[in-house]
Simulated scan of single mutants.
Amino acid sequence: MTTATRQGILAVVVAVGLAIVGVSVAVAMGDAREAFAGSTAATPWAARVLLALALAWVLIGMLAARTRLVRRPGAAAARASWIASTRPWRARESTLGMLTFDRVLLLVVPGGLLVATRAVQTSFLSWTHLAIVLVAWAAFLAVARVLIGRASPYPFVAAVGGAVVLRCILSLVVMSFADPAAALAALWATPVVRVVYIAAAFTLFVWVFVAAGWAVGAHLGARRAVGVVIAAMGAGLALPATIVAAIGVDRVVGGGVDEVGLLSWVLARAFGVMDALDLPGAAPWYAVGLGIALVIVGLVLVRVSPRVR
């Protein structure tokens, strides 16, 4: 059995495992129909445009991997993004010899799509939520870049960016309906569809971090790669949680169900538990503490295996 075959089998096993966990999460969440409200008339059209662009990016990446299209400007970036997100063990080879323009696109295209998708998802109303999301991802990428050190950061960027694009596509499909709120309400009213959707969303989200670690593991080593991802995740949690604690939970979540949909509903329930314990204001600080703990654990793992291959 070749190395590529073993890696592919392992990837399938990981994906199936994540899907099983996602199903468990979906069942635990129950019915969230009350989480969704109406959206502006422009939202579906904006989502359709973004969906078309995202699908075009993925399609170019798929075709460029096997045709001469890879010679076109930007096609190499789309190819690397597709390969790194679906076969992260090939991320390093997929980014070799890329031009500066393609390297910029590796970050700009997924980043721009993420920002635009979040803006559409909140109906261009919750700029606070959008800012917090951007801060989280910026912290994640910045810490990862520092810890990767002398090694090339582009395999990491390609894997994360490609996985983010796939996650955005799932969200945009639902938002492309004529009435996203009605579509989501109908989706949540059907248990099987609800479970499948949440499981897919959970799997794609977690896969972002799995692919990130896998992509840099070839030249950093498995232990150090895990440390990089854990530390970056900790920073991506601690910094936005600090912001939430500073501006107040009520301003972020309170009254925000109409703006941030499922995320707000999950946060609202989480903070509802804290409220029942008479500790609603402490929730963000617990998140800050967890983020700092993850950073420490990640740094320890990176330090244990400091040598770059």
Score class of each variant (00 low, 15 high):
Ala77Leu: 07
Ala77Pro: 03
Ala78Glu: 08
Ala78Asp: 07
Ala78Arg: 05
Ala78Pro: 07
Arg79His: 13
Ala80Asp: 01
Ala80Ile: 04
Ser81Gly: 06
Ser81Asn: 11
Ser81Met: 12
Ser81Leu: 15
Ile83Tyr: 05
Ile83Lys: 00
Ala84Ser: 15
Ala84Gly: 11
Ala84Gln: 14
Ala84Asn: 09
Ala84Asp: 11
Ser85Lys: 01
Ser85His: 04
Thr86His: 12
Thr86Ala: 12
Thr86Ser: 12
Thr86Met: 13
Thr86Asp: 08
Thr86Trp: 12
Arg87Trp: 11
Pro88Cys: 10
Arg90Pro: 06
Arg90Leu: 13
Arg90Ser: 14
Ala91His: 04
Ala91Cys: 10
Ala91Gly: 11
Ala91Arg: 10
Ala91Asp: 11
Ala91Leu: 13
Arg92Asn: 15
Arg92Met: 11
Arg92Tyr: 09
Glu93Phe: 05
Glu93Ser: 12
Glu93Arg: 11
Glu93Ile: 10
Glu93Gly: 10
Ser94Gly: 06
Ser94Arg: 04
Ser94Asp: 10
Ser94Thr: 13
Ser94Phe: 06
Thr95Asn: 07
Thr95Tyr: 07
Thr95Gln: 09
Thr95Cys: 14
Leu96Lys: 15
Gly97Met: 03
Met98Lys: 09
Met98Ala: 14
Met98Phe: 04
Leu99Asp: 12
Leu99Ser: 15
Leu99His: 10
Leu99Lys: 13
Thr100Tyr: 03
Thr100Val: 13
Thr100Trp: 14
Phe101Val: 14
Phe101Asp: 05
Phe101Trp: 13
Phe101Cys: 06
Asp102Met: 07
Asp102Thr: 08
Asp102Ile: 02
Asp102Ala: 09
Arg103Met: 04
Arg103Lys: 14
Val104Ala: 13
Val104Cys: 09
Val104Tyr: 11
Val104Ile: 12
Leu105Ala: 00
Leu105Lys: 02
Leu105Trp: 01
Leu105Val: 02
Leu105His: 00
Leu106Ile: 04
Leu106Arg: 03
Leu107Ala: 15
Leu107Phe: 05
Leu107His: 02
Val108Leu: 14
Val108Tyr: 00
Val108Lys: 05
Val108Arg: 04
Val109Glu: 01
Pro110His: 01
Pro110Thr: 05
Pro110Arg: 02
Pro110Phe: 01
Gly111Leu: 03
Gly111Thr: 08
Gly112Asn: 09
Gly112Asp: 08
Gly112Lys: 09
Leu114Arg: 06
Leu114Ser: 14
Leu114Asp: 05
Leu114Ile: 09
Val115Ser: 03
Val115Arg: 05
Val115His: 07
Val115Ile: 14
Ala116Pro: 05
Ala116His: 02
Thr117Lys: 07
Arg118Asp: 03
Arg118Tyr: 00
Val120Leu: 08
Gln121Tyr: 12
Gln121Ile: 01
Gln121Ala: 15
Gln121Thr: 09
Thr122Leu: 01
Thr122Arg: 02
Ser123Tyr: 02
Ser123Ala: 15
Phe124Asn: 08
Phe124Gln: 02
Phe124Pro: 10
Leu125Phe: 00
Leu125Trp: 00
Leu125Ser: 06
Ser126Met: 09
Ser126Leu: 06
Ser126Val: 10
Trp127Lys: 02
Trp127Ala: 01
Trp127Gln: 00
Trp127Ser: 03
Trp127Ile: 04
Trp127Tyr: 06
Thr128Arg: 15
Thr128His: 14
Thr128Ala: 06
His129Phe: 14
His129Trp: 14
His129Arg: 02
Leu130Gly: 00
Leu130Ala: 05
Leu130Glu: 03
Ala131His: 03
Ala131Gln: 05
Ala131Ile: 10
Ala131Asp: 02
